[in-house]
Structure formats: structure tokens, C-alpha cells
Write a protein that binds this DNA or RNA. Structure first.
Lengths: 196, 196
DNA sequence: GCTGGACTATGACGGTCGTTATAGCCAGCG
DNA sequence: CGCTGGCTATAACGACCGTCATAGTCCAGC
């Protein structure tokens, strides 16, 4: 999960591991001790690399996942919006299936937990940014393929929301059927919206 | 939130309060102590009413929300799928707005957190049931209005997933714009699918 | 070789967690 | 009146939490 090519530094391992754990258990239920252990790093190191503590670590994990996904999305969208959708769906399907329906999207997980006390925590803002990035990638591609600008933006939102929701449903039902249903409907909708 | 007509019993207050808190903070981050305090009930009472502890309380909270929502959905679907969709969206929009973007769907929240150790926890199974119930209500209505059976099932899944995902996006962005986008797209899609 | 800073190791702090146990209250019934 | 059983009150249990402090280890660059 979230593999990177070269021998990843301790810091990278911690961030990637945190993203993975958050995607399984949620943010509040994932302790810094477990994140450190999961990355085979000492607890003290987490506060060395992330002096602002858990908040910072969560923020970086969200951004990491956002970038990781956006990279794949960006590449596949070169072959058109339908190919992009398929890649987006395949990416999450792999995560869900490989984890035996235990992992989901860490960005969604962070979006769902209230700021414990203070204002808008950085991690939540990062999640909003990630969603917006994904939407923009999709919307731009739709527009390039002839969709009306407004339609493109609306459909992009629907795609991101539907995929996130579908992944959660798959976890609850321990089945990939929701993904199949969503894939079918979204693909038809894209084809009906673009006018190549 | 989740108001019921007559002076609610302590047990009902605890369940409704638990649903509300879970929808804000997630399951793992909501303590039994806080649930009791939120319902102005003593801690001991929670273990009196729910001897199996947190797991049971979470399960009942999920089922409670599922029923509460299904009731509204069932009623509005009598006026057709589009009216049902609008009611479904309005219901969640009210929760999101009234809570100042702090509350979401407790069913989604439970779906997202891994079983800590044991098998499939009861709360997760309850969440899957709730999703299936909502889908069935929508799919039946779509079929009644002329949708192909397969299309109806797929679209129903998409609607539930999209609404759940959209609510989460609204929380992250602290904006209702995602709900507007999703509403527009889903409504058009329903109209294109049913053939009255 | 030495030094300085990056990183690790360890342990502690006050607090909250889920859960259990036990004793007390008090309506309703005999 | 006494008793019973549903509910409350209170305290405790071991475990874990986020965070911080400090001392130890390592190695690049002088």
C-alpha cells in the first residue's frame, strides 16, 4: 500500500503508514504509538519529524494520499474521462479488495471526524483541498472533451462523492457490488455528458 | 436532532444522542461517558440498557438512524423518485447546515472504522443493512416509475453512495455546494432513467 | 579525531478509555 | 408495612492516550 520506489526514508514510511492506518480505523482511533510501530519507527521520531504532533501527521497523510491518487488520475485522464474514471475506480477497488474490505479512503475518514475543540484543523482543510483537486482534474478533462463547463463541474463533484461513498458501502457490505453499480452508472453518465 | 414526539425515555435519549455524537466525531472517538452525559443519563445506565457495551449501543444508534431516515424516504417516495431524492438530500442538508458542518451520517461513520479485533462487528453489519434498505426503497420506486430493474438497482446504489459521499465533502469544505452539484446531477439522471 | 546536529531510546506526566462492581434510591405490590 | 426489582450513583480496575523531556547513539564535515 502506498509503495514508493526507493528505500523510503523513515519519515516517508511514517506518513504512508499513517495514511494506511487512518484509512482503516479513522483518525481519532489511530494512535501515534501505533503509527510509529507500524512504520517500525520509534515513537520519539514521530515528534522529531512532526513537531506539531498528531494534527500535522494527519495533515501530511491526507496530502500524501491526495497526491498519490491525483498522480494516477492525471495520467489516466490523458486517455479521456472514461479512462480516468476507470482508473479512479480501479485504484480504490484494489485498496478495498487487497485489504479484505478493511481499508478505505483516509481523506474521507478525516473529513468525517469533528475538530475536537479548536477551529478548523489543518487536516480537515487538507482533505477539502484534496477533494477540490480531484474534482478539478475530472472537470477539466470533461470540459476538454466537450462537456458544458457547469455540467463538468457538477459531474466531477458527483464522481468524487459517489466513489468515496461507494468505497464506504463496499466496506460495510463486504462486497464489491456497490462499486460495480456505481461504475456502470457513472460511465454511462460521462458518455452522455461529453459530446466528442 | 433526531427528535421524537413524546417525552423520550432515557434509553431513547441515549440512542439518539449516541447517533448524533457518532455522526460528528466517529465511533471510536465517541466515549460511552460522553454519550451518557450528552443524554443527561448516568454512566451506569448505559450498561444497564446496553449490557453488551459500546458495540450494542453503536448498533442501535445505526439502526435508529436507518429507520428514522427510511421513514422519511418512504413517505416522500410516494410522490415519485425525484421527490424522494429531494427529501433525502434535504434531510442531510439540514443536518449538515444545522450543525454548522460538524455533523454527518452516523451510518457512514461506522462503516469507515475497522473492527478493532474480532470478526464482523454488529454495528458494521447494521450499517450494511441500513444501506441496503435505503437502496431498496429507491430502487423499488424507480422500477414503479418505469426504470429497467437493473438500471434501478444501479442507480439506487449510486444515489445512496453519492449522497453519503457528498455530505462528507460538504463537511470538509464547509460548504453546501457539493450538495447542490450532486442534487442537480442525480435529479437529471433519475429523469433520464424513468420513462413515465 | 572531534564536534554538532540528526535521529533513537526510554520513561514519565496527567488524563481518559471500556468495563465492572457494589451500594443506594424509590415506585409499586403484597 | 416490608420487599422486590428497575434504575442511579460512585468508585475502581488495568490499559492506553498525546505529549514532553532527557539521555544516548550515529555519522558527515571540518
Amino acid at each position: 500500500m502506498y509503495v514508493t520506489k526507493p528505500s523510503p526514508s523513515a519519515r516517508e514510511r511514517i506518513v504512508a503508514g499513517a495514511a494506511d492506518m487512518i484509512s482503516r480505523r479513522g483518525l481519532n482511533a489511530t494512535s501515534i504509538r501505533e503509527m510509529a510501530k507500524h512504520a517500525r519507527a520509534p515513537l520519539g521520531s514521530t515528534y522529531h519529524y512532526f513537531p506539531e504532533g498528531k494534527q500535522q501527521l494527519a495533515t501530511e497523510a491526507v496530502r500524501f494520499t491526495g497526491e498519490w491518487t491525483a498522480r494516477s488520475l492525471r495520467k489516466e485522464l490523458e486517455a479521456g474521462p472514461v479512462a480516468g474514471l476507470r482508473a479512479f475506480l480501479a485504484l480504490w477497488r484494489k485498496i478495498v479488495v487487497d485489504s479484505d474490505f478493511r481499508a478505505g479512503c483516509p481523506v474521507l475518514a478525516v473529513s468525517i471526524e469533528e475538530p475536537s475543540s479548536d477551529e478548523t484543523p489543518a487536516a480537515l482543510a487538507a482533505a477539502a483541498d484534496v477533494f477540490t483537486t480531484w474534482e478539478s482534474l475530472l472537470a477539466d478533462s470533461l470540459r476538454e472533451h466537450g462537456a458544458e463547463p457547469d455540467q463538468a463541474a457538477q459531474l466531477a463533484t458527483l464522481i468524487v462523492a459517489a466513489v468515496e461513498g461507494t468505497v464506504a458501502m463496499c466496506r460495510a457490505k463486504r462486497s464489491t457490488q456497490p462499486l460495480d453499480h456505481t461504475a456502470e452508472q457513472l460511465q454511462a453518465l460521462i458518455l452522455a455528458t461529453i459530446k466528442d
